[in-house]
Amino acid sequence: MSRPVVVVVGNPRPGSRTAAVATALGRRVAGDGEVRVVELADLAGELFDPASARVAAAVEAVRGAAALVVASPTYKAAYTGLLKAFLDRFGADALLGIPTVPLMVAGAPHHALAVETSLRPVLVEIGASMPTRGVFVLESDLADPDAALEAWCATHLPVLRPGLAARRAA
């Protein structure tokens, strides 16, 4: 059985536009492989419960992923506290070798660097491998998630795919 691409959505609203664009990216990364979506909004009441079986299952899904898409709306030039609480479950190098794409959604272009300056560092700290730049999507482009991702995918998927293939084979 092949490892799935796991999409972690840090939006506090389930079924958000952030989830839609992140899932679209997960499908593009996975190609014909499986995609699993972890909506942290569904786990919000359990994130600080060390005995939560559902959170433990989400953590294990992330650890076993062929690749990750980690997505958040931009709040105060950074990612959500919900996503931070989940990422705090992972120690240094816990995601070592997992190809990871950070994705952030924002209402204005002046937040474009948030994906690189706020989300990327925490993912690096927990060992995620990020061979490409992150994805920044304006809210105004969310009506067509696939179109919003087209340029990034054309440039970066060829770089991401070798690491994904290696993880799937492992």
Rank of each mutant, 00 (worst) to 15 (best):
M1Q: 12
M1K: 11
M1S: 14
P4Q: 04
V6N: 03
V8K: 05
V9W: 13
G10M: 03
N11W: 08
P12K: 08
R13M: 13
P14D: 13
G15W: 10
R17L: 14
R17G: 13
T18Y: 05
A20Y: 00
V21P: 08
A22R: 06
A22I: 06
G26T: 05
G26N: 00
R27Y: 02
G31L: 07
D32F: 09
D32R: 15
D32S: 15
G33I: 07
G33A: 13
G33T: 06
E34R: 03
E34V: 07
L40A: 11
D42Q: 15
D42K: 14
A44Y: 09
E46A: 07
L47V: 08
L47W: 08
F48Y: 12
F48E: 14
P50A: 09
S52W: 04
S52G: 01
S52P: 05
S52Y: 04
A53T: 15
V55K: 02
A56C: 07
A56G: 14
A57N: 04
V59H: 04
V59I: 10
V62E: 07
R63S: 10
R63I: 05
R63D: 12
A67E: 12
A67M: 09
L68C: 11
V70M: 00
A71G: 14
S72G: 06
T74P: 00
Y75H: 14
K76Y: 13
A77T: 12
A78P: 00
Y79R: 02
T80R: 03
G81I: 12
G81D: 11
L83M: 07
K84V: 11
L87S: 08
L87Y: 09
R89Y: 10
A92I: 05
D93L: 02
D93H: 04
A94N: 00
A94H: 01
L95R: 01
L96Y: 07
P99E: 13
V101M: 04
L103W: 02
M104S: 04
V105W: 08
A106E: 01
P109H: 11
H110S: 13
H110F: 15
H110V: 15
H111G: 03
A112F: 15
A114P: 01
L119C: 01
P121A: 00
L123T: 09
L123G: 08
L123Q: 03
I126Q: 00
G127N: 02
G127H: 03
A128K: 00
A128V: 08
A128F: 07
A128E: 05
S129A: 15
P131E: 14
T132G: 12
G134T: 05
F136Q: 03
F136T: 01
F136R: 02
V137Y: 06
V137E: 09
L138G: 15
L138P: 11
E139D: 15
E139L: 08
L142I: 03
L142Q: 02
D144H: 04
D146G: 04
D146Y: 03
A148S: 06
L149N: 07
L149V: 06
L149T: 05
W152T: 10
W152R: 02
C153I: 06
T155M: 12
T155P: 03
R161N: 12
P162D: 08
G163Y: 15
G163T: 01
R168A: 14
A169R: 14
